[in-house]
Design a protein around this nucleic acid. Sequence first.
DNA 1: ATGAAAGCGCTAACAA
DNA 2: TTGTTAGCGCTTTCAT
Lengths: 331, 331
Amino acid sequence: MNANIKEIAKRANVSIATVSRALSGQNNVREETKKHILKIARQLNYNPNLLARNFVKGKSNIIGLILPDISDEFFSEIIKSIDDTSFISGYFTMVISSHKNRSLVESINTMMNSGIAGGFILLVPFMNSEIEKALKSERVPFVIISGDSELGDYDIITIDNYNAAYNAVKFLADNGYKKIAHIAGPDENNDAALRREGFLNACTKLKLETKKSWIVKADFTLESGERAANLILKQKERPEVIFAANDMTAIGCYNAASKLGLKIPDDIAIIGFDDVLISQYVSPPLTTIKVDTETIGKTAAEKLIQKMTQTEKLKPQTIKISTELVIRNSC
Amino acid sequence: MNANIKEIAKRANVSIATVSRALSGQNNVREETKKHILKIARQLNYNPNLLARNFVKGKSNIIGLILPDISDEFFSEIIKSIDDTSFISGYFTMVISSHKNRSLVESINTMMNSGIAGGFILLVPFMNSEIEKALKSERVPFVIISGDSELGDYDIITIDNYNAAYNAVKFLADNGYKKIAHIAGPDENNDAALRREGFLNACTKLKLETKKSWIVKADFTLESGERAANLILKQKERPEVIFAANDMTAIGCYNAASKLGLKIPDDIAIIGFDDVLISQYVSPPLTTIKVDTETIGKTAAEKLIQKMTQTEKLKPQTIKISTELVIRNSC
DNA sequence: ATGAAAGCGCTAACAA
DNA sequence: TTGTTAGCGCTTTCAT
């Protein structure tokens, strides 16, 4: 069994209170006593029982990270980034994913009420009333990472989907493209909705040609992208370029184009969104919009820790992490 | 603040002990009383304080997952799989990655001594005496996920690197390839070492031609794969096929081949290892060896939970998760 | 600067 | 079946 402060107190001939004070680095202990205690603690290879410490303090230095029911490299990077940031401030990261066995709401309730986490970061692709209800208690602080900055009165870390999409279209216009199609993401996905909106407004403002039959819904997967691209490319009038809601969809377009014998970017140009690893290795390398996952994770963790440590309540804040256009050879 | 059993006891007119018993589903409570208590608990939206529960029980239902200082889709899948499995048995998953700010040894010590985790899963690409020392206390149970099944007297979940590599080479031989090269992984990486060994032995046994200059070391990255492939492909005598230690390296070969104007698989065939997502989308789709990450995670979690719950100590066990050859068009 | 003691929420041993 | 009580390891308040 692990040594405890009682044991150290006995060996050091002091009270457990003094040991506690010395170990938690308070300055109301005589320097000499402190040194002595620290030495014994080291000898015994003492590690504080974090469970007991958190318990008695009535708070936890565990940060919960609630993930949705999908799995891609995005999350792996977010997790690392959050864990990195948390660790520096003395926190641990607990992952709790939501899936068939456990709903998002259940995950939120656990984080909110079990006391196991002192705060949590919620990754949600969408919001609904069930989730809102679960979040209402605010028993422990949380921040949300989401595509939508208009979710409500929460602290939100988001990327600027709308402007990123708008600027992507502007880039295409600047490069002489006039006829442009869009493969959208799922309706209920906020990232997807905002990208779509940015696309549509840019088309209007910049006087680019698009039409209903050139705007096809997909679901962020490669397969759905290929299906959607087929729908677009087999029409009598073809667009010059497709703006895909994400990279996987864009790569689905590559497959469709290849099977139809169309060359990228000459016959059909393509632009994606996300800059996943694979995008630089497809042929031709995909022009896309880079999402800075590391900064997203870091910012979320920092904001949460700020909320966990300060007492006064600040107004909810939306932090938009900017994106970056990565120009390669697909348009 | 969250309701506690004291509050419930008061409202139900019973003692806290009875409440505790009712809530933890013991059967030594009168059915009627139990119902009453459960109802009140629900009314109060009661959630047990897990910190207190774990603390008093002297154990934790948190499973630690120690990750090395790298990040790829492999980990994202492992995390999900472990978390899924843990959740079903009532455990949480805490991720603790090792990196510039926190060494592997430090992570192990935290998991071992802080009481915060009741057990942990260690992902290590290699073993050394420092790590061995940290693991020696066995204060809490753990299992290791590693490429090497010969690490020592531990419970290890591993893939059968040696046989997977051997069989891959056999597959190549069966398909008529005679001259074969290998791009190896880092020396200190056990997965890499075993794949290399499997390759070498297969070459000997199956009488395939290889030579020193056709066996080049890389470091699992795409760039290093491209460099290594260049070294191989620019020699006067070229092999017919390259067995790459992992998929990213294999894709590096694609780049090298493309720049040298060599067609895959006609001029040079390629086979990889891992079956990462991207492998099915490169052109031509990569033939490779699929590593079943989901089963690895699941098995590791199950084994660990078994160790955490049973009292008698079993002999350390090595569990090899089999791999699967995925035949595509690169050889 | 130090010690004594209460108490965090819960479980479990013992008593009734 | 139910209640009483000790105690898990630690922090913190109140004395000294």
